[in-house]
Design a protein around this nucleic acid. Structure first.
Length: 477
RNA sequence: GACCCCGUCGUCCAGAGGCCUAGGACACCCGCCUUUCACGCAGGUAACACGGGUUCGAAUCCCGUCGGGGUCGCCA
């Protein structure tokens, strides 16, 4: 029995990744199987250099480990899809030769045009199969001459595909709902659909446990297994974590980075425990439990399919329980490994040394480096920009978040550069806009240099405060 | 919009035909404890989406409606 978690290194380590990893892990351990970590980095445009390591660190931090993966190796290495390109190319070639796939030379522009037309006519969207019946030999020649193209699966035109979801039973999808999925992109790398099927087969994955959002593309995967004449794994689709409004959890409405929870002082086991409460229960009233206990009690029958709202209040309550159960030695260690340590202090001190005359002034001076959400009421009246409405100011803060998120690295230089461009684009004065940022990030009129402060606070806390400030200011009169 | 999934307190779960005048937890409200606050303890408000079936009997099974969500990319 083998399962895998297959995160894509495109940003901050996501709680959803941890959630699905937990269920994979628990199921594997319960059944005495292997848990594999595979990095799905086939999208060069979105891949982030630091993301992969952050995923490893975050998963380790909450207490999960894997039997095979890019960092620990294993019998099916490599575990990074960018290093497995030849497998996908070979697989696609096989389908091409068998006439089960074809080369498509349609341009992105044409596809966009088709899509717009389909929407205008209110028809089902999807590829119109323009290249499907072109002569294969001619297509091969065009490709040989270097013409850019993709490889698409020849999906059946009639009939239907049945996906046996182990949590819901058979799900039947008509052929007309399945279009000719791209298998190999024009850059020669596979799409998720091809790569996950090829790798799951090659890596002998027996059970695919993933989020519900994948259910609608599973028929394509089933079709691929059939085309290769491979045995498909069993599929389990877990419900999606939700925002308070029930939509799929998203960073605009909820902190989604595992690092955020780490930075605000949620204990790793509390987070993991909380994730175990999402869509699953012991069957009795037990709410606080260890990973080992969950493994022991795990059964798919105890999974519920309604999308669970990720509720900060309840996570905080659970975390409180964990804190209270720590002895003082352990609590001290937890606090130290959080932020109260020399390493962190050495980042903070350069910002405040000139501002203190006695050591007893230190704690008040650096209080907001060790706090989570701030109280903006004392400065709310000052959080405005001449000739801008509160709504504009709120929106501008959100804009600034977008700008800094698009950048790799959270250094003072990057933050300042983006702030200056942002200020200019808004037509504001830096003395006003920077003060606004200062209020948002520190809730004070006076602080050490703004961008250094943000950098030391870290991406997660900074982003959260900017967002909170945006909300409060946006609603202000 | 089309297709697919889901539907028990505001939220997370229990409930797998009679044990349900629906249970626990978070949040909220009240009280006790206490110099204060917090913890702790004791109470309280609050839900089976709706309509049809099936059955002696339905939160539990079936159908429909409604509601929510997901997907419809050369992103995963």
């Amino acid at each position: 029995m083998r399962v895998r978690i297959a995160p894509s290194p495109t940003g901050d380590p996501h709680v959803g990744t941890a959630y699905i990893a937990l269920f994979n892990y628990v199921f594997a351990k319960k059944a005495g199987g292997k848990f594999v970590l595979r990095i799905e980095d086939t999208d060069q445009t979105r891949a982030r250099a630091d993301s992969e390591q952050m995923i490893f660190d975050a998963l380790h931090w909450i207490g999960l480990s894997w039997d095979e993966g890019p960092d620990v190796g294993g019998p099916y290495a490599p575990y990074r899809q960018s290093e497995r390109a030849h497998h996908y190319k070979a697989a696609a070639g096989e389908l091409l030769d068998a006439g089960k796939a074809y080369r498509c030379f349609c341009t992105a522009e044409r596809l966009a045009k088709v899509r717009i037309q389909q929407q205008a006519e209110k028809k089902n969207s999807g590829y119109d199969r323009h290249c499907r019946d072109a002569d294969p030999t001619e297509a091969r020649n065009r490709a040989a001459q270097g013409e850019t193209h993709v490889v698409r699966l020849k999906a059946p035109l009639t009939g239907s595909v049945v996906v046996h979801d182990q949590l819901r039973g058979p799900v039947t999808i008509d052929a007309d709902q399945i279009d000719d999925q791209v298998l190999l992109k024009s850059d020669g790398l596979p799409t998720y659909h091809l790569a996950n099927v090829v790798d799951d087969h090659l890596m002998q994955i027996t059970h695919v446990i993933r989020a519900e959002e994948w259910i609608s593309s599973t028929p394509k995967h089933v079709l691929l297994y059939q085309a290769f004449d491979w045995e498909a794994p069993q599929f389990f689709h877990m419900p999606l974590l939700r925002n308070a409004d029930k939509s799929k959890i998203s960073k605009r409405k909820n902190p989604v980075s595992i690092n955020y929870y780490r930075d605000v002082g949620i204990l790793p086991h509390a987070l993991l425990n909380f994730l175990g409460l999402m869509g699953w229960s012991f069957g009795d009233d037990r709410e606080k439990f260890t990973l080992a206990e969950m493994v022991d009690a795990f059964a798919w029958e105890k999974v519920s399919l309604g999308g669970p709202v990720f509720n900060l209040d309840k996570l905080t309550w659970l975390n409180e329980k964990y804190i209270h159960d720590l002895d003082y030695e352990q609590l001290a260690d937890a606090v130290i490994s959080w932020r109260l340590n020399k390493e962190h202090l050495i980042r903070v001190l350069p910002l405040v040394r000139e501002r203190i005359k006695k050591l007893d002034e230190l704690i008040p001076a650096i209080e907001y480096f060790y706090s989570g959400d701030l109280d903006y009421t004392p400065v709310l009246a000052d959080m405005k920009i001449p000739d801008a409405t509160p709504a504009d100011v709120g929106k501008a803060l959100l804009d600034y978040i977008e700008k800094i998120e698009a950048r790799e690295g959270f250094t003072a230089a990057v933050l300042e550069e983006e702030a200056r461009k942002w200020t200019e684009a808004l037509g504001w004065k830096a003395k006003h806009s920077f003060m606004l940022l200062r209020f948002a990030v520190t809730a004070r009129k006076a602080s050490p240099p703004l961008f250094e402060t943000m950098s030391v606070l870290g991406k997660e806390i900074t982003r959260r405060r900017l967002r909170q400030a945006a909300e409060i200011v946006g609603k202000a009169k």
